[in-house]
Design a protein around this nucleic acid. Structure first.
Length: 343
DNA sequence: TCTGGGGTCCTAGGACCC
DNA sequence: TCTGGGGTCCTAGGACCC
């Protein structure tokens, strides 16, 4: 039987800021966007004090300012966050080589071969993360990734928690379906009419009815998840970039086509520069356009030859852009390069 | 009082080729 | 001239993750 940990840094972006600004400790601190609630942006990370006011990840900064006028707003600073994330992952790899990164602030660690109690390894990791990085984390442990992740969610903030197969009916079944990785709000909405509003409902649901709603493959996978079953291995392959993109939400929606084309040209230059920095050529360019009513369109175009040239990317992006009918002002422009090959 | 920015994966239809 | 099936590529869209 496997021993899997899921380690999740608590309020990571905020915690990184507090290391260099300890005077903010104990205050409602919100990291997101450009750190200015007068501009469009959302919460990336909120301190637990801020969460006490109802602040949540993904919430518009403007709304946070109204809910919590004393909140301290800070911009997202990846130059500080990324090195800390790398130290975190290096620490985990010193415990076991089987580490699967899950974003900047989370990872699965398989410790089966250590032949030590998972809870003990969890406590050691938590202590080392505190002593060596100055950060708090929550750790969940179980016999698979699915349950370890649920356990760490239950352990937040700052706890250690195990969820075993035997715990599934009592601990997992009362949770909402969105507690399972892979079930988001859309799927929850499709499950509700079937009378499925908890993981337990999902586990007990009639397979045929579920297949009708979601298709056979997905229905089977969901129902296995709801029963706590997951055999997926730890993927400790280094991450490989598949695409590189940039997007920008205008503070005020833009209707002027020339201004939009100018922005697209600027973005093409930046994406091309990033591609060259990382040693890639792109084979496909995609443009995303979000209108003021939130209708979103994506158009993509395969290049005649792989390229990281700003003019080539811009020409393709422009061709994509011209195929979108601009029935309203534009809120967001995005440009993605994919089909990456080494240059 | 609306929902950022960076990613990934899956599905499905049509074109095209053998 | 018509027919069939399989495989792959391209595009669009949807959903999810942090």
């Amino acid at each position: 039987v496997r021993a899997i940990l899921h380690v999740d840094l608590d309020a990571f972006f905020v915690a990184v800021e507090l290391l260099r600004r300890p005077e903010l400790r104990g205050k409602p601190v919100v990291v997101g966007g450009r750190g200015d609630p007068r501009t469009r942006g959302v919460v990336s990370s909120a301190s637990y004090e801020a969460r006490g006011f109802g602040v949540k990840a993904g919430m518009p900064l403007r709304r946070v300012a109204r809910m919590c006028p004393e909140a301290v707003f800070l911009p997202v600073d990846f130059s500080a966050i990324r090195p800390m994330s790398e130290r975190f992952h290096a620490l985990l790899r010193s415990v076991s080589p089987l580490v699967e990164s899950w974003g900047l602030d989370e990872a699965f660690v398989e410790v089966t071969a250590l032949e030590r109690p998972a809870a003990e390894v969890a406590a050691e990791i938590q202590r080392r993360v505190r002593d060596e990085l100055g950060l708090a984390c929550s750790v969940g442990w179980s016999t698979n990734k699915l349950l370890a992740k649920i356990a760490s969610d239950l352990a937040k903030p700052g706890g250690i928690r195990g969820v075993t197969m035997d715990d599934v009916p009592a601990v997992v079944w009362p949770l909402k379906p969105t507690a399972l990785v892979g079930i988001g709000p859309k799927t929850a909405q499709r499950l509700a009419p079937l009378g499925i509003t908890t993981v337990g409902d999902l586990a007990r649901a009639d397979p045929t009815a579920l297949e009708g709603a979601l298709g056979a493959r997905w229905a089977a996978w969901l129902q296995r998840s709801a029963r706590g079953l997951d055999e997926s291995p730890i993927n400790n392959e280094p991450w490989e970039r598949r695409s590189l993109s940039l997007e920008h939400t205008f503070d005020v929606d833009v209707g002027d086509a020339d201004a939009l084309r100018a922005k697209l040209r600027e973005m093409a230059g930046e994406v091309a520069a990033h591609l060259r920095e990382e040693g890639f050529l792109a084979q496909t360019v995609a443009v995303k356009v979000r209108l003021s009513n939130f209708d979103t369109y994506q158009r993509q175009k395969k290049l005649a030859a792989p390229s990281a040239d700003a003019d080539v990317l811009f020409a393709a992006a422009l061709a994509c852009f011209e195929r979108v009918e601009l029935s309203r002002k534009v809120r967001l422009l995005g440009l993605r390069a994919s089909g990456l090959v080494a240059s």
